[in-house]
């Protein structure tokens, strides 16, 4: 791990973009909607005013919403592994980086995921301000980038940036940039600053208490049913959740046979577990809502992943039409006697 001084974020970004295709959160189509978009060589360098939380986390770069697994050409099954060109994701916030680390582990043996993942270098960015609905400090997912979660990390210090290398691949990308090594105290200062930024986040006692109640099985079944009634099975939470990974697959006809496509699924859908016989072990919406939050907050998963399945990004709250995103649910859970 080494640290350098960086004059501006744009300097690093444009240097990296000259080497490989680079994706970074940008406002799409002259709007105020941040999306993951390629940095175009054709447009002049855009200034980065603040780190943006894009609508989607970064998961679709490795686990795309729809992906062909294999083809059947009429005689045999042919695996179709992706052959991705190297790329860089720039400006990934800590919550989304923690989710990438979580999915790296979940998809450890998945060749499709791993092919895309191995072709990608991650440039993380430390968040200096709380974002709307975000609670990463409560679930140990931010606000600063955790060690080992990115190839490079950018950290603002006054009018300049601290650039920390976390992998040799990341450091190799810096070749050609004439950077001054940062003083040790810059790094110490970063460490001591994180609690101060974390302290600016609004109180999240409802999340803490909710996690406790879920793990002590103290949530009444009726409350799950009541909240289940509010689940419109839209799949918004599972689409935007950075750690959600459920998929289904189906055969699509193509010219000379079929291809098997896997696509994102949602455990909130009624038929997610329905068997061919019609039997459904999770037929009640309340069961499915409970399952979703169990999967995000049960201690059981810490054994495997070293952390909760929730990284505190708050996207589910924003996209849930039924008012059962993370804050709404945890407030109700924590309010039960």
């Amino acid at each position: 791990m080494r640290a350098f001084l960086l004059e501006s974020l744009e300097q690093l970004r444009d240097h990296l973009a000259a080497q490989r295709p680079l994706f970074t959160p940008q406002f799409a189509a002259d709007s105020s909607e941040p999306s993951w978009l390629p940095l175009s060589h054709n447009t002049p360098s855009v200034a980065i005013e603040q780190p943006l939380l894009p609508a989607y986390p970064a998961k679709q770069f490795f686990f795309p919403e729809r992906e062909i697994l294999f083809r059947f050409d009429g005689t045999d099954f042919k695996e179709t592994l992706p052959k991705p060109a190297p790329q860089i994701l720039f400006g990934v916030r800590s919550c989304d980086l923690c989710a990438i680390a979580y999915q790296d582990q979940f998809f450890q043996q998945d060749p499709y995921y791993q092919a895309r993942r191995k072709a990608t270098l991650l440039v993380g960015i430390d968040c200096q301000l709380p974002c709307e609905g975000g609670f990463c400090p409560t679930v140990d997912a931010g606000p600063f980038v955790r060690d080992g979660m990115a190839d490079l990390v950018c950290h603002q210090q006054g009018d300049h940036w601290l650039l920390i290398t976390q992998t040799s691949e990341g450091e190799a990308l810096l070749e050609g940039l004439d950077l001054k090594a940062a003083a040790e105290e810059g790094i110490t200062q970063r460490r001591s600053q994180e609690p101060q930024v974390a302290a600016q986040f609004p109180s999240a006692t409802h999340i803490e208490r909710g996690i406790q109640r879920i793990n002590q099985s103290q949530v009444p079944a009726e409350l799950w049913q009541t909240m289940g009634l509010q689940c419109l099975s839209c799949s918004g939470c599972t689409s935007l959740c950075p750690t959600c990974s459920c998929f289904t697959s189906y055969d699509r006809p193509v010219d000379d046979g079929f291809e098997r496509e896997r696509c994102w699924d949602s455990c909130l859908y009624d038929a997610f577990q329905r068997e061919a016989s019609g039997h459904n072990p999770s037929a009640a919406a309340g069961q499915r809502v409970e399952r979703f939050w169990f999967h995000k907050f049960s201690d059981e998963y810490i054994k495997t992943f070293g952390r909760y399945g929730c990284t505190g990004c708050g996207r589910c709250e924003k996209t849930c039409p039924g008012v059962i995103g993370v804050h709404s649910v945890m407030k109700r859970i924590s309010a039960t006697p």
């Binding site: 709007s31 609508a55 679709q60 919403e65 918004g236 859908y269 924003k318 996209t319 039409p321």
Partner: peptide, 19 residues
């Protein structure tokens, strides 16, 4: 077309969509 993104600034949907 590979997917859909919700738009938080849209006055009607405010970042939400249905199935």
């Amino acid at each position: 077309i590979t997917g859909v993104e919700p738009l938080t600034s849209h006055p009607v949907s405010q970042g939400k969509l249905c199935a």
